[in-house]
């Protein structure tokens, strides 16, 4: 589903050159639930951002669903992300000015979907994460676990084939973290969604199909 070939990412400032990701080759199969672990600053998030086409590799290529993405222009990238990818972030990144329902609807705004269609799909997604009774709330009125579930609803509302999750349980206590993990696992099992998750938590990583460990930008396992 995702093929990374010889991915390198170098950050340059005036004086220093930092190699964040160094020669990574990785294949993620369709329907796989993969976790990426490693100490802080090892390049996990950078790798995930490259997979999600949010960041460009300095060299190497990213293919998703059989398509080489290196020559995509801004609009193609936007379209591709919208259709194929869903993101979950550690700090949720909900838009605080919008109600839960409007937050979930966001990816559908960039498609040709009618407002009734958007509403129906958003309500469905919220039902899946168990938040049907919080649609008219604002993010600030929700707990951390609830916010992350809204973020999951937003990530799945467009039915993407791939979900990229950057420490989705990082800000939550273990009970809430388990809840989030259960939702992700059921998505993977029932809907066949491919999931790549960056985590610090061995216990969470243990629940996934495969574990990749990074150290100083290189794959060690």
């Amino acid at each position: 589903m995702i093929q990374l070939q010889n991915i390198e990412k170098v950050y340059r400032t005036d004086t220093v050159e930092t190699l964040a990701v160094n020669g990574i080759n990785l294949n993620v199969a369709k329907g796989e639930f993969l976790s990426i672990m490693g100490p802080s600053g090892c390049g996990k998030s950078t790798l995930l951002n490259i997979m999600g086409l949010l960041d460009e590799p300095s060299s190497g290529s990213v293919s998703i669903d059989g398509q080489d993405t290196s020559r995509f222009k801004d609009r193609q990238l936007a379209h591709f992300r919208n259709e194929k990818l869903g993101f979950i972030f550690q700090s949720y990144h909900l838009i605080n000015d919008l109600q839960v329902l409007d937050n979930v609807e966001l990816p559908l705004l960039y498609r040709n979907a009618s407002s009734t269609e958007r509403r129906r799909l958003s309500e469905e997604a919220l039902a899946k994460v168990g938040l049907s009774n919080r649609m008219k709330h604002f993010p600030s009125q929700l707990s951390g676990g609830q916010r992350q579930r809204v973020a999951i609803a937003r990530a799945i509302v467009g039915r993407p084939q791939i979900i990229l999750a950057d420490e989705p349980t990082g800000n939550l206590d273990s009970a809430m973290g388990n809840e989030i993990m259960d939702i992700l696992m059921s998505l993977n099992e029932k809907e066949g969604t491919t999931i790549v998750m960056v985590t610090h938590d061995e216990h969470m990583a243990g629940k996934t199909h495969r574990l990749v460990r990074l150290f100083d930008g290189s794959q060690v396992q």
């Binding site: 999600g52 949010l54 801004d74 609009r75 990238l77 936007a78 379209h79 992300r81 919208n82 259709e83 869903g86 993101f87 990144h93 909900l94 838009i95 966001l106 990816p107 705004l109 960039y110 498609r111 937003r154 467009g158």
Partner: peptide, 15 residues
Amino acid sequence: SEIGVRKAFGASSRT
């Protein structure tokens, strides 16, 4: 943050 999220979920620069 809102801009980042919108871009991640499919908003092009033009949009």
